[in-house]
Computed example of a mutant assay.
Amino acid sequence: MNQVDQCYLGVWKRRLIQHSSGRSDSETAVYWLQTPRLFGDLRIPSSSLPSLALEDLNDAQRLALCEQQGFAGVTQIDANICQWHRKMDYQPVNGEEDIGRMHFENSEHLIETALDESYYEIWERLPDSLGLCRGQWLLGVDDQSRQGCLLLAGDYFLFAANRPVPLAPGNHLREKLAQSENTTNPATLFSCELSFGRHHDGQTPWEIQCSTLPGRTGQRLLPSSVDPFAPAVFDNQAVLSSVGAYIPNGGWRCAPDP
């Protein structure tokens, strides 16, 4: 699979989605970070949640978590058709393809349209996301079912990691929450992390601005001593042993793109 064109690189913020049914959304915080091959996409509804650990959230707050979305993997582009191959997903895997027709209004504004015309989305590239752009796929040292990635674009980062316990396929996380009531700890359903933020050229800790784990918001992903522009940043033991809320046994190791 070839690298994507340079015009796609950086962080794109969604300004609007308009469905053919008439429903629209401009309030959900949606960020798509695209590197030459790897991507991450995080979608947090506008209703804010307190910065609490998953175990401390009440039933209504856990239900609100079910509306979050996030996924990461590899992007494939053929002409103006873009397909995002999801290798990890916050929602249960349902077999649907993620594919759209892309049109650049200019270098910083992009329109995505469904192949069946059921929706269109307006994307705007964040200026501070231009510059060095790269990503690294990660696997657990002692558990190769644990997958993650760290993506960098300009001043921004996105870290993604799948759940310690895999989630069975299904239609929506709401269904999994209902099924787990009184049988398992519901917090295990929500331990898929996608955390997005800025590192400010390494001058301050890598601040998480939004995350699928509400307790991570405002925290640091990595210490300021980790230089995001260092050639060997992905080989840095401080990164591989500490990044993420649910670190696999033995930490992470660098792996080829999936």
Rank of each mutant, 00 (worst) to 15 (best):
5 D>M: 03
8 Y>H: 09
9 L>D: 02
17 I>T: 08
17 I>V: 15
18 Q>L: 09
20 S>N: 11
24 S>N: 10
25 D>Y: 02
28 T>V: 09
32 W>G: 05
34 Q>N: 08
38 L>F: 08
45 P>I: 05
46 S>R: 12
46 S>A: 15
47 S>D: 11
48 S>P: 05
62 R>G: 03
63 L>W: 09
66 C>Q: 06
67 E>T: 08
76 Q>W: 04
76 Q>I: 09
77 I>A: 15
77 I>Q: 15
79 A>Y: 11
79 A>F: 12
79 A>M: 15
84 W>H: 08
85 H>G: 08
86 R>Q: 14
89 D>K: 04
91 Q>D: 04
94 N>A: 07
100 G>V: 12
100 G>Y: 05
101 R>P: 00
111 I>R: 14
111 I>V: 15
115 L>W: 09
117 E>G: 06
118 S>C: 08
125 R>C: 05
128 D>L: 15
131 G>S: 06
135 G>I: 06
136 Q>K: 03
136 Q>P: 03
144 Q>A: 14
144 Q>K: 12
146 R>D: 01
150 L>E: 00
155 D>Q: 13
155 D>H: 08
157 F>P: 01
158 L>A: 07
160 A>D: 00
162 N>E: 06
163 R>Y: 04
164 P>M: 06
167 L>C: 06
169 P>V: 08
170 G>R: 06
173 L>M: 10
174 R>N: 13
175 E>R: 10
176 K>Y: 06
179 Q>S: 14
181 E>W: 12
183 T>G: 03
187 A>V: 06
189 L>S: 04
195 S>H: 03
196 F>R: 01
197 G>F: 03
197 G>A: 06
201 D>L: 13
202 G>E: 09
203 Q>W: 02
207 E>A: 13
208 I>C: 04
208 I>S: 02
212 T>K: 00
213 L>I: 15
217 T>H: 10
221 L>H: 00
222 L>E: 02
223 P>E: 11
224 S>K: 15
229 F>R: 12
232 A>P: 00
232 A>V: 06
233 V>L: 12
234 F>W: 09
238 A>D: 14
239 V>I: 10
241 S>R: 13
247 I>Y: 01
248 P>H: 05
249 N>Q: 15
250 G>W: 07
254 C>A: 11
254 C>Q: 11
258 P>N: 07
258 P>S: 08
